[in-house]
Simulated assay, not measured.
Amino acid sequence: MMLDNLDRAILRVLTQDATKTASALGRLLGLSQPATWRRIKRLQYAGVLTGRRLVLDAEKLGFGVTVFLGVKLATKGRVSLEDFERAVSAIPEIQTVEHVLGLYDYRLRVVARDLADFERVLRRRIMTLPGVGDVEANVLLSEERLSGPI
């Protein structure tokens, strides 16, 4: 699908505030509500716009620690990647599961109430997953830029 400047403008506004209505978007961009609505539907149908997310502030919800884990599977042949992904996705403290190329096989974003809570999640839930070998933890100190427009 070829995106024009108006499509890109719609995506830019929606990445900043996904609650904007087609009417509000149209006013911002100089389009009618029906024209804006048709463009949004076309972007959704083409798979460019796949949904809208609610972003929660983990710290305000009591999760003061975020840790990125690099996980290397110990036995790739004995445990399927799908089995590991299914098991790790069932742990609510794990926010993202990314299959990556490099030193580790997976990169996980884990939230916890504090370091003691993280240690509990790591020991009792993550280290007991099928196929887990080496694990490296990196504690998030600050986040300068959240994911947004490409």
Rank of each mutant, 00 (worst) to 15 (best):
R27V: 12
R27F: 09
R27W: 11
R27C: 09
L28E: 14
L29Q: 01
G30L: 04
G30N: 09
S32C: 01
Q33I: 00
Q33A: 05
Q33M: 09
P34A: 11
P34T: 04
P34L: 07
P34V: 05
P34M: 09
A35S: 08
A35P: 02
T36V: 01
R38G: 06
R39L: 10
I40Y: 03
I40T: 04
I40A: 01
I40L: 13
K41H: 08
R42E: 13
R42K: 13
R42D: 12
L43A: 02
L43E: 00
Q44M: 10
Q44S: 03
Q44W: 07
Y45C: 06
Y45P: 02
Y45E: 15
A46P: 06
G47N: 04
G47R: 02
G47S: 06
V48H: 11
V48Y: 15
L49P: 15
L49H: 10
L49G: 13
T50M: 15
G51W: 10
R52P: 10
R53V: 15
R53G: 09
R53W: 11
V55S: 14
V55G: 02
L56A: 14
L56G: 08
A58V: 03
K60V: 03
L61A: 05
G62H: 01
G62P: 00
G62S: 01
G64A: 14
V65P: 04
V65I: 12
V67W: 09
V67R: 08
V67T: 09
F68H: 11
F68E: 12
F68C: 11
F68D: 07
F68S: 06
G70K: 06
G70E: 06
V71H: 00
V71G: 04
V71I: 13
V71L: 00
K76M: 12
K76W: 02
K76D: 01
K76T: 07
G77S: 13
G77L: 09
R78I: 14
R78H: 15
V79H: 04
V79S: 06
V79G: 06
V79E: 07
S80D: 06
S80E: 10
E82W: 02
E82V: 12
E82K: 11
D83H: 06
D83R: 15
D83M: 11
F84C: 08
E85K: 13
R86A: 09
R86I: 09
A87R: 01
A87E: 06
A87S: 12
V88E: 04
S89V: 14
S89Q: 03
S89W: 02
S89C: 14
S89R: 09
S89A: 11
I91H: 02
I91Y: 07
I91C: 04
P92Q: 04
V97E: 12
V97I: 12
V97S: 08
V97F: 01
V97D: 07
E98R: 13
E98W: 05
E98G: 05
E98Y: 15
E98M: 14
H99Y: 11
V100W: 07
L101P: 00
G102V: 04
